[in-house]
Structure formats: C-alpha cells, structure tokens
Nucleic acid binder design. Structure first.
Length: 429
DNA sequence: TCTGGGGTCCTAGGACCC
DNA sequence: TCTGGGGTCCTAGGACCC
C-alpha cells in the first residue's frame, strides 16, 4: 500500500474574541468591537470594522482613547471563561465532521486530511465544516488546505484576506502555492517573527516566495533549524505533523500585572500566595505534581524616570508536591530572597516546573503514607468546593478580603452568557 | 496615570569530567 | 614560555506562537 499524500487543513476563527462578544449582541452587528487584555491594557482582538479603522493588535488602549470615542467603538475586557466555552463548541463541531484533528490554540485547529477518500473533495468537506460551525455556534471561520502545515497557514491567510474565496482556499498545485507566496509578505509566514523578518528584509527577501526559494541547509547555518524547516514546508515537504495527543505540560505559570502598583511587601506576599495557589490548583486539574518552584517580580520596563528592577528565585522541593500549603510557603521564602523595598512593582508570578504525573508518586524514605493521603484528601476537598459553584475557599496568606488593590482590572466585562446560570441571555417575547 | 498571559524550543556559554 | 578536545548538564536569553 502506498503512503497517502500529505494534506492538512487549518481552521481559524475570524477575530475570535471579538466575534464571541458579538454573539449575543445583535445590536453590535456592524459596529467596531475590540477586546482588551487583562487590566484593560492592550488590544488583543478586533472585529473587522475595528481593523478597518487601523487599530493595531497589541496597541495600548490608552493610546487610542480618542479613536474609541470618535468611532463609537464597543470595548470589552477579556472574558476568557466565555471564549473557552465557545471554543469548545467550535472544536466539537469540527471533530464531529473529521476526527483526525489537533486543537492548536483556543481558536485554531489543524486537520490531517491525508486519509480523505479520493472521491471526496477536500474543498467541499471544508465548506460543509465551515457552514456547520456557523450554524451551530454563530462563529465564522476561514480554512486553508495544503500539503504542509505552513502552507495550510498561508492558504488560511488567503482565505481571510480575499473574501471572494468564500472562506476556503485549497493550494492544490505547486503553481497555485507559488502564486500566493509571491503576494505574501515574508513576515506573514508562520514561524517567521519580527526579528527574523527584519534580517530577511535586510538580505533582500520581501515576499514568502523569496524565502521559499532559498536553500534550507545554508539558511540553517545562518539562522536556525526552525527557519530551515519553514523553508522545507514552504517547498511542500512536511516537517511538522499532526499532534493529536498533546504532550504533557513541562511547566505551568500563573502571573499577572497588577491593577495598581505594589510598594508594600505584604501586598506582594498576598499576590504571590494567590498565584501560587492558582497555579497549584491548575496543576492538580491535570493530575500533575511539581518539584521546582520559581517566583519572579518586576517593575515597569516602560517608565524611564523610575529605576527598573527584575528578579527571580527558584528552588527544588526534593519531594514532588501538589499541596497548595507547601507551594505557598516555598513561594514566600523565595520572595524573601528577591524582594527589595523602594520599587513600584507592576507584575509578579509563580512558575512550577519539573512536572510529573501525580499517580507515579512514590513516597520517600521519611514520608508517612497516612500523612500523604490526608494531604491529598484535603486538596481534593478544596478543589471540589471551589468547583461546586457554591462558593470559594482560599488560604489566609492570599489575603482576607477579596478586594485588593493589586487585583486585575476588568471594567468592561461582558456577561458570562454560556457559563453562568445567572447571566444567561434572556429572550423577551 | 494607562503597555497581557501562557507556553515551547533552540542556542550559546560556563562548569565539570575524562 | 608553550595549556587538548569532546561530551554532558545546566542556565540564561532569544525567538517564536496564540
């Protein structure tokens, strides 16, 4: 039996967060919508109307206040729980149509279409997936189809950019791929970031086709193995394959910028304790345990008039743990090492690494089985209370009141339409 | 005044060893 | 006078992704 010809599709939700915000707001149909990052800091999503106004991705909100005002733009704080729920519905719809699938991000999925019967047209299949997603979730997607993931990404770029394609582009022949790459700026290629783009342009490569024409080996020497692989992929030779079972996490982080600057160690200790508690909870959800804890903090890199300070400290536990109490205690010890008075801190975080499955836990020589079981039951009890929706328990070191100055600012949050019974949209007849 | 959060992989350089 | 070379492990920093 011959090996099937490689064929990938990339499905990408259009303006995902902004589209979610429009779902239950028909009044926003043709209005510009933008979604802001935590603390209502920068723009992380724009509706097509907002893009047309020239608002850039990542732009700080305070710099475009005048445009928001003048153009009557609808502004939202990020509502990640809501977006994650809509994402799940989109992914389920895709899987229903084609199970060889890799969820690549909250709004993207790759399909491996190499097993598609030759009697079925990839373009037709993708159009039916696209229609179903729109009908079942209200989200519009674009789909690119090609022999490699990088080319599928490029095809997706075309599907988004040229409405006449109907949202689906199949790079069926090398000639068609070549034609698109000639129209595509080199910086639009998946895997080519701003740094590499600047260097390539310096060397005279403006379009994706310019890069695709290079010899992968000599470019590997000058750049890196990743650039070489990207060139191979642009030439139609697959280097990246479908990853259906995501590899287990190697590290997990919880970090935040503060709603207001922190200058007191007590407030920082509360923030760090809270992040330690969150990330440990997240780790337990995936049935993992950690053996290495890192705490970091920093002042603002944007303020020239104040001194910059950034530091991190980490330590190995010795016996892998998923006990919030241990992680909080350790994080606070680490904070002692790096805390300095006299700075205005904007951000801190706690990172857990050397993650291993909690089930593989073997007790050390000095550990007590009963004590360990007790600890596991306590953590399970805390998690079940916090997941019950009936309330929340937390540790005293996270701060007694739920209103602290360092808490994230989310002043323009939309309702949790699909994830909270009390905020379900109501239809009045 | 106001600039996100959470990841992965690669590379270069230092320490250490034989 | 004259100071190898290769392997491994670790870490910090760079670059990229969404």
């Amino acid at each position: 039996m011959s090996t099937p010809k490689p064929l990938y599709a990339l499905i990408d939700c259009n303006n995902f967060y902004a589209s979610c915000e429009k779902l239950f707001r028909p009044d926003l149909d043709h209005r510009s919508v933008i979604v802001l990052s935590n603390n209502d800091g920068c723009v992380v999503a724009r509706s097509k109307e907002a893009k047309a106004l020239g608002i850039k991705m990542g732009e700080p909100a305070f710099k475009i206040e005048h445009i928001i005002e003048r153009e009557n733009i609808a502004v939202f704080s990020s509502n990640y729980a809501f977006y994650a729920d809509i994402s799940m519905r989109v992914m389920q719809t895709i899987e229903h149509h084609w199970p060889d699938m890799e969820i690549y991000s909250i709004d993207e999925a790759f399909l491996d279409l190499s097993r598609l019967p030759s009697t079925t047209s990839p373009t037709e299949l993708c159009h039916s997936i696209r229609d179903a997603i729109y009908q079942w979730t209200g989200i519009t997607v674009s789909i690119g189809i090609a022999p490699t993931k990088t080319l599928a990404k490029a095809a997706n770029y075309a599907a988004k950019k040229y409405p006449a394609t109907g949202g689906v582009v199949h790079l069926e022949t090398q000639q068609r791929a070549q034609k698109l790459l000639q129209l595509m700026p080199v910086g639009e290629i998946w895997g080519i970031g701003p740094r590499t783009t600047a260097k390539l342009i310096n060397m005279g490569m403006e379009t994706a086709a310019d890069l695709a024409g290079k010899d992968p080996l000599s470019m590997k020497k000058r750049f890196s193995v990743n650039v070489a692989r990207t060139i191979e992929e642009l030439q139609g030779n697959p280097c990246f394959h479908l990853e259906e079972d995501p590899a287990p996490r190697k590290q997990m982080v919880c970090s935040r910028s503060f709603g207001e600057r922190i200058t007191q160690k007590e407030a920082m200790a509360q923030a760090v304790s809270t992040y330690a508690s969150r990330v440990t909870e997240k780790m337990r959800e995936q049935n993992l345990q950690t053996n290495h804890v890192t705490v970091f903090l920093r002042t603002s890199p944007f303020n020239d008039s104040l001194p910059y300070y950034s530091n991190a400290a980490s330590a190995t536990i010795g016996a892998p743990s998923n006990d919030t109490r241990e992680i909080i205690a350790m994080a606070n010890q680490l904070l002692d090492y790096i805390w300095k008075d006299g700075y205005r801190y904007v951000k801190a975080g706690v990172m857990l690494s050397e993650l291993t499955p909690a089930s593989s836990r073997e007790l050390g020589l000095w550990e007590d089985r009963q004590e360990y079981d007790k600890q596991q039951r306590l953590m399970a009890a805390i998690d079940s209370i916090n997941h019950s929706g009936k309330g929340r328990v937390w540790f005293a070191s996270e701060g007694a009141s739920r209103k602290q100055e360092w808490k994230v600012k989310r002043e323009r949050l939309s309702p949790s339409y699909t994830t909270d019974w009390s905020e379900l949209p109501v239809v009045r007849l």
